[in-house]
Amino acid sequence: MDLLRALWTFSWLTAAFAVLWMALLIVARVVRDAGETGVERRRAQITATFLKLMQDAPLGETEVLEIRRHPDVLAEILLQAADLVRGPARDRLVASLKALGLDEALRRQVGRGAERKRLAAVEALGLFPSPENEATLRAWGRRVGGLVRITAGKALLEMGAQVNLDRVIEDMRQRREAWSGPLSDLLRLLAERQPADCLRHLGRPDLPVALKALLAEALGHAKDYRVLPALAEAALRGEAPVRAASVNSLGLLMHPALEPVIARAVDDEDWQVRGAAALAAGRAGFVALIPRLAERLADPVWWVRFQAAEALTRLGPAAWRVLHAVADADLGAASRAASLTLAERGL
């Protein structure tokens, strides 16, 4: 019987504890709501100060002090302004803030507060190229993992500094969860600035397939034809995800010399590679691939049929004639793909 009584008493204690916890949270909310009004006011003040700076109007000492005391709000408003304002007005704003030494306040913010606030400060520091800011970003990038590290890398590239790709790759290799979208953004930026380094890693046999696919995908954004041979090699001989990513990237570069590579990829055993190759052939205007694309209209995978038909609509009257011929014949899925695409495109 004691156990039953204990249960009863314990349940009352837990209920009382939960109610007390919630009551305290309600009181805390009253206090916080009062504080929030202050934050909103501060945001409005700092936004007004920014507008003054963009118009080259002089600032009072209290206005500068207000910004310096709230680097978290400074970072937040600055990033919003940088998204909205471009050109001379933005340059004037950044130069004025730097002249007032406010990037120093951001450097302090990088090391304190909630992760969201630190991230904003790291990102905002990228707008102020200087040796001190670069050193701060490098130091925190090394010390902190996850998003702060990635953001620090992007901020360094934004300010025109170098980022050690070897270290980034090593970091990604060691941490499975790090192969994420934000990191692939960083890789794209690195591929634009340091394509040769990316190529060196793409050829490494010891890198995981997913990582190599990310590198191949990033190289498509390099806008540098020197990457073509290595990407073509990866498109033909890499693992399936690497081949698909490489063909996608080759499709973005649209170089005429790629036709034989795309032609082979159109017949690849992996449907994602075939789909990407059809898309690339249409984008690059490879008219010589019309017969192969017509064959792909009967592909067992719908996505490939769809991409092949779409590609043919891009390749001019000769390709349209092929589509009409397939549509008129009784070829099942191929005829359906051709006729629906022709109707959809009004051809």
């Binding site: 249960l7 837990t14 919630m22």
Partner: peptide, 23 residues
């Protein structure tokens, strides 16, 4: 005591959990 224990698992623990979820 049995009735109390049943009330504990059916009512009072329920209160604790619901309020805790809100918290």
């Amino acid at each position: 005591a049995f009735l109390e224990a049943f009330a504990a698992v059916s009512f009072t623990f329920g209160v604790a959990l619901s309020v805790a979820a809100l918290a």
